[in-house]
Design a protein around this nucleic acid. Structure first.
Length: 514
RNA sequence: GCUCCGUUGGUGUAGUCCGGCCAAUCAUCUUGCCCUCUCACGGCAAGGACCAGGGUUCGAAUCCCUGACGGAGCACCA
């Protein structure tokens, strides 16, 4: 009895259980849902009416896998706490981190692919007036001063814990000079607005940091192209977090000092700083290409990659085209947790998650790479392997064999050896032919004969399988031609793949994973 | 140089706050077996870790100290 139950597929077991004991099923599934104990609880959740988080991407290109960590994690927390999150594009550097106008939508698409919908989307470059207002308030509160020191000069003073002469100028002068900054009356480098923190704070990183600077290069967004006085991340982000009601900030360890810097501003305004979680950097194995948007952009421009969705690229667009569901990416990334140490994401865990999602649906087909042709002697005209081994009801395929077959070089039997052509019959190698032996399937069960996949010698579908390691050519059985673009299927003994396009010359499929 | 932070099997993670139930969890991974007309799915089993050394304690992965290793910041980048 137990053996019979074990023979059933998961889906079948579920169906049986549904008829036998619906309550039990509900209990089991509820348990499954509650099984997502990957992420630690957010701190002090009870202190807030609603948990509100934000993703603050710099729109400089489509996302790589590592970028997905933020939406994956805050999306999960949103679900857990019935909270919300805002996507805020921190596009306040028109020059060195110049925004890519196409990246805004590309990033929102990537978030959609992952299965999350932001509750709000805002652009920092729309909010300059807001930042200016707060800067003026900060000046009035004595919390900022304009400074015309060169970066080097100030740095030296700062490292010695010494104030620069501008620190003690009166507020009226600062007000006037800041107004001139906003009006664009200075060139880049001539004047900045500094936050007055603690000039001999033991951590040099926190001493009187820059809040606004002049940038001559116009912002690529037309709406923001007239501004020359731009806030630095720590000021802009700090003000926005408060104004948008963010209760929990999650960010990288590279911004460990940000909270400490921003607290000075918060103190001037008498605001309460949100909860902060810092996490380490993510690396992804299995890719030769570096995980960096700028590196990817260079590779694409140089023609080393076909585009952002090249299967060799570690981007979300690539994974998507390969038929990997956003949900699988989210699962794998959420499982990394939020520790402050750097972590490695292994693609095998993404693959494992995805396999679980697609295996039950994926139809099976044969693809033969670098096939060697053999005439068949004495067998039936066609083989009929099932469309899915766990679901007989889905029917079977028809793979013609009358005109001969092709098999992969590694599978070619030695002279006199037998091999079982899956869904067809047992054959023996006799010279350049494969001769049907009439053996029963028992020879396979006994372990005497290997089962291999195969394709007809004629009337096949030419396939280019695109993989992270490059393209592979082969021929697929005729029924493969009837699949739809976008279907995720399994090439038996090769791996899962997403049907990309059935062209006139050849069909293109993207390899997903084993 | 100054200032922060971290270190549990190949990978990730639980446990560390409030020492004993931890000869350390779960997943992935690898290997073997079973199932199977796929090297998929499923089942079973095995493998593999508390950075090091001191200290406190009846008892330490958990507390303290020292060291090693790793990471981050000290930008008119984000």
């Amino acid at each position: 009895m137990v053996g019979r139950v074990n023979d059933l597929s998961t889906a079948e077991k579920r169906e049986r259980l549904e008829t036998l004991a619906p309550e039990e099923l509900a209990a089991i599934e509820a348990e499954d849902d509650g099984d997502e104990h990957d992420l630690p609880d957010l701190p002090n959740v009870d202190d807030y009416d609603e948990v509100r988080m934000r993703a603050a991407p710099n729109p400089n290109g489509p996302w790589h896998i590592g970028h997905a960590r933020m939406p994956a994690v805050i999306g999960r927390y949103k679900e857990r706490y019935d909270g919300s999150f805002v996507v805020r594009f921190d596009d306040t550097d028109p020059e060195t981190k110049r925004p890519d106008l196409e990246a805004y939508d590309a990033i929102l698409e990537d978030i959609d692919y992952l299965g999350f919908e932001p509750d709000e989307v805002i652009l920092a470059s729309d909010r300059l007036e807001t930042y200016y207002e707060h800067a003026r308030d900060l000046i009035d509160a004595g919390g900022a001063y304009t400074c015309s020191c060169s970066g080097e000069t100030f740095s030296e003073l700062k490292n010695d814990g010494e104030a620069c002469p501008h620190r003690e100028k009166d507020r009226e002068t600062t007000r006037r000079e800041f107004a001139a900054m906003v009006d664009g009356e200075y060139d880049a480098g001539e004047m900045v607005l500094r936050v007055r923190t603690d000039i001999d704070h033991k951590n040099p990183a926190l001493r009187d940091w820059v809040a606004f600077r002049m940038i001559d290069t116009p912002h690529p967004r037309e709406e923001a192209s007239e501004y020359r006085c731009w806030p630095m991340l720590d000021f802009q982000s700090g003000v926005d977090d408060h104004l948008t009601g963010v209760t929990h900030i999650i960010r990288g360890i590279d911004l460990q000092d940000s909270a400490k810097r921003q607290r000075f501003v918060y103190d001037y305004f008498d605001w309460t700083y949100p909860e902060v979680v810092h996490w380490g950097h993510v690396q992804v194995d299995a890719y030769d290409v570096q995980l960096s948007t700028s590196t990817l952009k260079e590779k694409i421009d140089a023609g080393d990659l076909d585009g952002w969705d090249d299967p060799r690229a570690p981007t979300l667009k690539s994974l998507r085209r390969r038929g990997i569901r956003g949900e699988a990416v989210v699962e794998a990334l959420a499982a990394l947790g939020t520790s402050t140490s750097n972590v490695d994401l292994s693609m095998s865990s993404v693959y494992a998650e995805n396999r679980e999602l697609v295996d039950d649906e994926a139809e099976r087909y044969f693809l033969v790479r670098d096939g060697e042709m053999f005439p068949i002697e004495g067998g039936p005209d066609a083989g009929h392997p099932p469309i899915h081994p766990d679901h007989e009801s889905r029917g079977e395929r028809t793979v013609p064999a009358a005109d001969g077959v092709v098999v992969e070089p590694e599978d070619v039997p030695a002279e006199g050896d037998r091999v079982w052509l899956k869904g067809y019959a047992c054959v023996r190698r006799e010279g350049d032919s494969l001769v049907a032996t009439g053996d029963d399937i028992d020879v396979v069960r006994a372990g005497d004969v290997d089962v291999i996949h195969w394709a007809p010698a004629t009337d096949t579908v030419a396939v280019r399988l695109r993989t992270p390691d490059g393209d592979v050519s082969g021929v697929a059985e005729p029924d493969f031609g009837a699949t739809e673009d976008g279907d995720v299927i399994q090439f038996e003994r090769i791996g899962f793949a997403r049907v990309d396009d059935h062209g006139d010359e050849e069909s293109v499929a993207y390899w997903s994973h084993p």
